[in-house]
Computed example of a mutant assay.
Amino acid sequence: MTTTPFQKASAWIDAENAQDPNSETYQSVSHPKELLYSNRMYQRLMDFYPEASEAVQIAAKAQHICRWKMPRESYPMDRVGYLKWREDLKKFHAKLTAEILEKAGYSEEFIARVSFLIEKKLLKKDAETQLLEDVICLVFLEYYLDPFVHKHDTEKLKNIILKTWNKMSDKGHEEALKINFSAENLQLIKESLGL
Rank of each mutant, 00 (worst) to 15 (best):
T3C: 09
T3H: 13
T3D: 08
P5H: 09
F6I: 02
F6K: 02
Q7D: 11
Q7R: 05
I13Y: 04
I13T: 03
D14R: 06
D14I: 01
D14Q: 06
E16Q: 06
E16Y: 12
A18V: 08
A18E: 09
D20C: 08
N22G: 09
S23D: 04
E24C: 00
T25F: 03
T25K: 11
Q27L: 09
V29F: 04
V29A: 10
S30I: 01
P32K: 09
K33R: 12
L36A: 01
N39Y: 07
N39R: 14
Y42S: 10
R44W: 11
L45C: 15
M46E: 13
M46R: 15
D47C: 10
D47K: 12
F48P: 02
Y49K: 03
E51T: 09
A52W: 05
S53M: 07
V56S: 13
Q57E: 11
Q57C: 13
A59K: 01
A60I: 03
A60M: 08
A62Q: 03
H64V: 14
H64K: 12
H64F: 11
I65H: 12
C66Y: 08
W68R: 15
M70D: 15
M70S: 15
R72P: 03
S74N: 13
M77K: 07
M77G: 05
M77I: 00
R79C: 07
G81V: 06
Y82S: 10
Y82C: 10
L83D: 11
K84V: 14
E87R: 14
L89W: 03
K90A: 12
F92S: 08
A94K: 03
A94Q: 05
K95H: 08
T97M: 04
E108V: 00
E109Q: 02
E109G: 01
E109S: 08
I111M: 02
F116W: 08
F116R: 13
L117Y: 12
K120P: 04
K120R: 06
K121P: 00
K124S: 10
D126A: 07
E128D: 09
L131A: 04
E133G: 04
E133Y: 10
D134M: 06
D134F: 03
V135K: 05
V135A: 03
C137A: 03
V139E: 05
F140R: 14
L141H: 10
E142V: 00
E142I: 00
Y143Q: 02
Y144Q: 10
Y144G: 05
L145S: 02
D146P: 05
P147L: 12
H150A: 14
K151G: 07
D153R: 12
D153M: 09
T154Y: 14
E155K: 07
K156P: 00
K158Y: 15
N159L: 14
L162R: 15
K163F: 13
T164H: 13
K167Q: 11
K171N: 04
K171M: 05
K171C: 01
K171W: 01
E175F: 12
A176K: 02
K178R: 08
K178M: 03
N180D: 15
F181R: 06
F181C: 07
F181T: 15
S182K: 15
N185D: 10
L188P: 06
K190Q: 15
K190T: 12
E191H: 05
E191V: 12
S192K: 06
L193Y: 09
G194H: 04
G194N: 09
G194E: 09
